[in-house]
Simulated assay, not measured.
Amino acid sequence: MATDSDSSGPNSLRDVEKLSLSDTSPVSPAPEKQRHITGFRKIVNQFNAVEDLPWLSVGFVIGGMAMILPFGKPYVLFDAKWVFIVCTIMFMAGSAICGGAPNVNAEIVGCVMAGEGENGMYFGLMALISMNTTTKERPKYLSLRQVHFYQADEQMRVLTI
């Protein structure tokens, strides 16, 4: 747990560590969103599965929403760093399944799995920032994380135009 010491900028290795913590996972959802933006037409045409288009579009969100409550407990019971790493691996595995899916059902399963992992990464990042900052520093680092997330989102939007 962090102590309440006053620091105005990144003066130590610990401060740099906190800054890097706020920038660990904001770009991970961006490739997933780009895949959805650019790949739906190709996926539907390749698998001839127009009827599964809604599942492709909401699979990522459903996976994330289904794990909101269950992810609270592991971050309390286990070391948050390792739960965060497991969630990152889950996100990457889901994205890999999407990338190599032989059929539309595997694509949907990959989307759901990636959504679960991304949501766990988000909660883990919030937990890690909260555990490693003081109450005075916390708003700065939490808002910095949101700035990084929206910056990555905008960069992916610009790249897909």
Results as ranks from 00 to 15, higher is better:
2 A>T: 07
3 T>P: 08
4 D>K: 14
6 D>Q: 15
7 S>F: 15
12 S>H: 13
13 L>G: 11
14 R>H: 14
14 R>S: 10
14 R>K: 15
16 V>K: 13
17 E>Q: 13
21 L>S: 06
21 L>E: 06
22 S>E: 05
22 S>P: 01
23 D>S: 12
24 T>W: 06
26 P>R: 07
32 E>Q: 10
32 E>K: 05
33 K>R: 09
33 K>P: 01
36 H>E: 04
38 T>I: 11
39 G>K: 02
41 R>D: 08
42 K>C: 07
43 I>P: 00
43 I>D: 09
45 N>G: 12
45 N>C: 04
46 Q>M: 10
48 N>W: 04
48 N>C: 05
50 V>S: 14
50 V>G: 09
52 D>W: 11
53 L>W: 10
54 P>C: 14
55 W>K: 13
55 W>T: 07
56 L>H: 09
56 L>W: 10
58 V>E: 00
60 F>Y: 09
64 G>S: 00
64 G>Y: 01
65 M>A: 14
66 A>S: 08
67 M>R: 03
68 I>F: 06
70 P>H: 03
71 F>L: 04
75 Y>F: 15
75 Y>W: 02
76 V>A: 10
76 V>R: 13
79 D>W: 11
81 K>W: 08
84 F>Q: 03
87 C>A: 15
89 I>W: 13
89 I>R: 12
90 M>T: 13
91 F>N: 02
93 A>C: 14
97 I>C: 04
98 C>S: 09
99 G>C: 03
104 V>S: 03
104 V>Y: 05
105 N>W: 13
106 A>P: 00
107 E>F: 14
109 V>K: 03
111 C>N: 04
112 V>A: 07
112 V>C: 09
113 M>T: 04
115 G>K: 01
115 G>Y: 02
116 E>L: 06
118 E>N: 15
119 N>E: 08
121 M>C: 06
121 M>S: 02
121 M>A: 01
124 G>W: 00
126 M>E: 06
128 L>K: 00
129 I>R: 03
129 I>L: 13
130 S>K: 02
130 S>N: 06
133 T>A: 08
134 T>M: 05
135 T>Q: 14
136 K>R: 13
136 K>E: 07
138 R>F: 07
139 P>D: 04
139 P>L: 03
139 P>H: 08
142 L>W: 06
142 L>V: 14
143 S>I: 02
144 L>N: 08
145 R>L: 10
145 R>Q: 12
146 Q>C: 06
148 H>Y: 13
149 F>P: 00
150 Y>V: 10
150 Y>D: 06
151 Q>W: 12
157 R>Q: 12
157 R>C: 11
157 R>G: 11
158 V>L: 14
159 L>E: 05
159 L>P: 02
160 T>H: 09
